[in-house]
Design a protein around this nucleic acid. Structure first.
Length: 590
DNA sequence: GCCGTTTTCGGCCCGACTGTTTTCAGTCG
């Protein structure tokens, strides 16, 4: 189980889901959903709050606060237990089938007694479903199709896969003569860590041919919906792509609308309503006479609502609207700010490219400096030795004259279960920079895992904690640790937290970045490249950093090299035991 | 159920597509 806030989030979300199935009031359902989201993102541990403290959380009123109190006092919420009794778990599972929402799920359960996906499948095959009022043959076929999709897909795909599809389709549609502009929107534009479907937007005065062009692209496996303003297809790999075509005049309003998030848009629309305006994908209109106010650019739409333009990566209703209103939006770190990569590999360990190939690729990217950080000796499979590491260092020093990059010799250390790393201080001191990461024993109990990470931070020579949660998206959960304690140690010792750009890692995740920066932690946005192509993943790490509201000043590899070296030296100076040499030198002065 | 620089009551975002219910409900984003 995660932190108490996440437990409460799950609780409130389940409550909302069950209310929806039992025909609860729509606004009550939304109230629980809103509360679930705010509690999850609330920086204070809710288990330590009293009724008064809980009610200070936005969207948490008397009723929800009391349920949270009840949960921490007894481990249960009576009202939730009652709903659970009414609705079997299988019925909640039904609403995960595409095209099957809470209303139909409730009809299936109350009229036909269907309480699981399997039972639904049986009911369709036996013809029972079609006897039910409102369920025709097409509905039955859609449900079967949905069940099949559910069975073979894990749902959301990684950013790089979605990006590849989006870029291929936008490139193809942009080349179409009827298409004036084409761009991707949705969670992909917001750089969420995974993407459910790809939302595309095109501007055209003649939508038909553009829609038609999409349905005929080679990567399209099936056409799901095909109307005059919206077309949905599924790629041969199972990813859904939605295309909306709007007039060029509506471009800004449409881009704003389809970028989301849904929660962000609800807030923006509420602001519009309070100003006597109505915002839709077609523009911002006056409510009284339907007159168009603005629509051509996102900037103009936000400006008319007295808001600064909000970067898509911030549009999650996590305080960005208030910040836009008061001129306090962060100056977000960008790819152009990144001066060097601090975590990369070569074929000396498990990389696939040679040192010279990696350096050439890094130089071509325009980096100022570049750290080579092959695995240290404790991972047996890497066959690293002191001699090989020192030989690599010599080679790197010799290559210094052949490149415009400032070369740093580093290593990726392994944090063992006790928090120790591969080498002692004397050997570690020979590196320019040291990343330290967990590579095994992911299942340690919370207390031991926390101590493990804190001890790594306390090592005077460890400069960056690599992929701190070690999660793999869609594969492996994050380690269980008290990350607030880890961040506190990181901030106190001058240890940066990595934002690993691998699309299956994106680690730290955005929510932990937000928490870490409250402790004053610094960050390193690295690619952890094991091949030349991986250097291109940097944009996903930067996107994740933006979602964590980071500015360039908080990112150590956005700093000039001198400042980065000072950061590294300062930790050693503060924490390293004074060596024999230094002691002698000091005695000599007296 | 929550919320208040119009309000402690009366609001709470908006539109497209599908399938089937020939006038609209459900789902989705």
């Amino acid at each position: 189980m995660g932190r108490p806030n996440e437990a409460v989030e799950a609780l409130l979300q389940e409550f909302a889901d069950l209310l929806a199935i039992t025909n609860g009031e729509p606004y009550k359902i939304r109230a629980y959903e809103n509360a679930a989201r705010t509690v999850a993102g609330y920086p204070v541990d809710v288990s330590g709050l009293d009724l008064r403290g809980l009610r200070e959380i936005p969207n948490v009123g008397k009723s929800i606060a009391e349920k949270i109190i009840e949960y921490f006092a007894t481990g249960h919420v009576a009202a939730l237990d009652q709903l659970r009794e009414e609705i079997p778990a299988g019925v909640r599972e039904l609403v995960t089938i595409p095209t099957l929402g809470p209303r139909k799920a409730m009809i299936l359960y109350s009229q036909l007694g269907i309480a699981s996906v399997d039972q639904l499948e049986d009911a369709i095959h036996s013809g029972l479903l079609e006897e039910q009022h409102g369920f025709g043959p097409k509905t039955a076929a859609n449900l079967l199709h949905g069940i099949e999709l559910l069975a073979r897909s894990s749902g959301r795909v990684l950013l790089d896969e979605a990006m590849a599809v989006a870029e291929e389709v936008t490139r193809a549609l942009s080349a179409h003569p009827a298409c004036l502009t084409c761009a991707y929107a949705g969670s992909l534009r917001r750089m969420r860590e995974t993407v459910g479907d790809v939302d595309l937007l095109a501007a055209s005065t003649d939508s038909g041919p553009v829609m038609e062009a999409l349905t005929h692209l080679p990567l399209v496996g099936e056409v799901i919906a095909h109307g005059p303003t919206k077309t949905s297809v599924r790629t041969t790999t199972g990813l859904q792509v939605d295309l909306r075509v709007v007039t060029p005049q509506s471009w800004g309003a449409a881009l704003q609308y389809f970028t989301g998030s849904k929660e962000h848009n609800i807030r923006v629309r509420e602001i519009a309503v309070r100003k006597g305006l109505k915002l839709s994908e077609y523009g911002l209109f006056r409510i009284d006479d339907d007159a168009l106010v603005v629509s051509e650019t996102e900037e103009a739409v936000y400006a008319k609502l007295d808001l600064a333009w909000i970067p898509p990566t911030l549009r999650e209703d996590r305080g960005e609207i208030e910040a836009a209103r008061t001129g306090r939006l962060p100056d977000l770190v960008t790819i152009a700010d990144i001066r060097g990569d601090l975590h990369t590999h070569t074929d000396l360990t498990d990389g696939t490219a040679s040192l010279t190939d990696m350096l050439a690729a890094a130089s071509a990217r325009g980096f100022h400096y570049y750290a080579v950080t092959d695995h240290a000796k404790s991972l047996p499979m890497q066959r690293m030795t002191d001699e090989k590491m020192l030989a690599q260092r010599d080679r790197l020093r010799m290559l210094a004259d052949t490149t415009d990059l400032e070369l740093l010799h580093g290593t990726e250390l392994n944090i063992d279960p006790d928090g120790e790393v591969d080498w002692d201080g004397d050997f570690l001191a020979g590196f320019d920079i040291r990343v330290a990461s967990i590579h095994s024993r992911f299942g340690q109990p919370r207390k031991a895992m926390t101590r493990r990470l804190v001890r790594a931070c306390e090592n005077p020579y460890v400069n960056v904690i690599g992929h701190p949660t070690t999660r793999k998206l869609n594969q492996r959960p994050p380690v269980n640790a008290d990350f607030d304690a880890v961040f506190e140690a990181a901030a106190a010792t001058g240890t940066a937290m990595e934002i690993n750009s691998c699309p299956d890692r994106l680690d730290l995740p955005d929510d932990l970045i937000l928490r870490a920066r409250q402790h004053g932690v610094k960050f390193a946005i690295d690619t952890d490249a094991h091949a030349v192509a991986h250097l291109d993943n940097l944009r996903y790490g930067v996107g994740t950093a933006q979602r964590g509201w980071l500015s360039a000043d908080e990112v150590i590899n956005a700093w000039p090299l001198d400042r980065l070296r000072e950061f590294i030296a300062a930790k050693v100076a503060r924490l390293a035991p004074v060596g024999a040499g230094a002691r002698r030198a000091r005695q000599g002065r007296h």
